[in-house]
Write a protein that binds this DNA or RNA. Structure first.
Lengths: 332, 332
DNA sequence: CTGAAAGCGCTTACAG
DNA sequence: CTGAAAGCGCTTACAG
């Protein structure tokens, strides 16, 4: 049989109330009594039932994270970072993915309604931003990890897309590259506009107006990076560098460039965005704007936990700075 | 105020018992009564509290997964597959990682003791196989997803390492490659022995005894794949093909080969193991033994859920077959 | 077919 | 400093 608070109370000769107090360090209590209770707890190997505590307290000590497919490397990174923070506080992390579309959301909604967790972390909630906002308005603590520039009406953590892209421009300029091909993500995302603007800012500051023809749209996939490079080459575009809006497209593009006989970085210097671990494993290793993915996940989780402890969630987005990692794809 | 079973009972003019019955479809009940109760449930938007149900039933409808860092691509795949299965049954998935070593295990142990979930999925429990076995012996439903050949004393799902490696050998032989360099993982893992044996089997069947000198040890990382290739080249080893015990080492090795002026597949045909999505994004795209990672995750999750429903967990490992994916790294 | 009542294992005013 | 008692919101024998 599993030991309960009652067993401990009986054995220690105190009330359950007292045991509960030493467990939670609440209320003044005679240090000797506490000592005795602790001894019994150890002796019996007593651990409070998570179910009973959750029920009695009305909170679960569990936070949920809603994200698209975990099969994307970016997701593993944020999740990992958030899990670590949450675990440190003894909380559990419940994960939900949206790979099944509406069906996923229906299932997720059931857990929300059942109040199966105390707070929520969200990543890339394409199409359900309104639903999430509604949950937030209904009182569920929510923090969005906003890598797509959604700028929602509820708490979020994001990064400096514009400044990051500016750094990419400055780096390429410092290498004398004045005709960069830009491989963008889907323009409907706010971050794409920011990255384009920041990049243009950098060139404009050096007196270079970017040629709109040197812009190809991708969709963040490897294949779209390849396709973008193919289109640019077939169109006979002339470029001495390439700035892709994520690492993966940069990698796809580099493969195409190499097969076309172009050398990276000699003929084309390449810069990515994200700086995931795989960036270092490209050939050549990829220079990239470093997005603080882990910090974003950890910060969002910390905000949520602080909120449980009584701190209000900041209404303005929390912005974490990008940095810039130089590797062989630009640094010969 | 959130609506409870009491509100529904009152409004429908029945007892809480009856409401509970229509909720759980248990016991015979007048269809008209049930209909009326359902109407009230809809009207009030009633959803049973997950906390209260878990407490009353003594089970949580949550399964946990313990895995090493989520930052490894393999992990995202298994997790994703398991999450989908679990979500389909309305269960939640709690994730724990072991990136913090003993501290992680201590925290995880606290959740186990608190009976915070009904069953456990484990991946690569290096060093804590005994602890997990102990949990299993104490009655916690556990399934190991065994990609490392641990062959534990409790339920597990694994794949055909030996047969997979055999297929790699046959493929290389069909290409006329008789001097394969083998880049292994750490030999302490059972799967490595099996992959070596299966590969040797294939060659032996063709009358070729593999040269033990043509074996270099790696540790499953990209860098170790590079290092292995460097060592082989520096040692002046002659090989016309390369079989790496995972994709990532194959990718690392390919980079080194290319920089050494060797062409893949013309000079060296390369085969990996795992066939993660990234294999298709190598240059050239990587031929690989396909490990059924997703099926392994899904199967393990299904076994656990079936066990909750009363099915016994199989005592022998459940073995899922590998397949073989041919791409340009061997198929010029 | 339906309900009253006990029970799941804690926490938390309230009283002393 | 400590305890008796109510309460959290369900499920489940048991009785009818």
């Amino acid at each position: 049989m599993t030991v309960t608070i009652r067993d401990v109370a009986l054995r220690a000769g105190v009330s359950k109330t007292t045991v509960s107090r030493v467990l939670n360090g609440r209320g003044e209590l005679d240090e000797r009594t506490a000592e005795r209770v602790r001894a019994v707890i150890d002796e019996l190997g007593y651990v409070p039932s998570a179910r009973a505590v959750a029920f009695a307290r009305g909170s679960t000590r569990v936070v949920a994270m809603l994200l698209p497919s975990l099969a994307w490397p970016w997701m593993g990174e944020v999740l990992q970072a958030a899990v670590e923070v949450v675990e440190d506080e003894g909380y559990g992390m419940l994960v939900f993915t949206t790979t099944q579309g509406d069906e996923s959301m229906r299932r997720f909604g059931a857990h929300v309604s059942a109040r199966a967790f105390d707070g929520l972390l969200v990543v890339e909630p394409e199409g359900q931003l309104d639903y999430i906002a509604q949950l937030h308005d209904q009182g569920l603590p929510v923090v969005l990890i906003d890598d797509r520039g959604h700028e929602p009406r509820f708490p979020s953590v994001t990064t400096t897309n514009r400044v990051g892209a500016l750094a990419a421009a400055q780096h390429l300029l410092s290498l004398g590259r004045r005709r960069p091909l830009v491989v963008t993500g889907e323009p409907r995302f706010g971050c794409i506009g920011e990255r384009l603007a920041g990049f243009a800012d950098g060139y404009r500051a050096a007196g270079v107006e970017l040629d709109p023809a040197l812009r190809v749209e991708g969709d963040f996939t490897y294949e779209s990076g390849q396709a973008a490079a193919v289109r640019a080459l077939e169109a006979g575009l002339e470029f001495d560098s390439l700035f892709a809006h994520n690492d993966v497209m940069a990698a796809g593009a580099m493969t195409v460039l190499r097969h076309a006989g172009l050398r990276v970085p000699d003929d084309v210097a390449v810069v990515g965005f994200d700086d995931l671990p795989a960036a270092a494993q490209c050939d050549p290793p990829l220079t990239a704007v470093h997005q603080p993915i882990r910090e974003m996940g950890a910060t969002a989780a910390r905000m949520l936990l602080a909120n449980f402890a009584g701190d209000p969630l900041p209404s303005a987005p929390t912005v974490l700075p990008t940095s810039f990692t130089v590797r062989a794809s630009t640094a010969g």
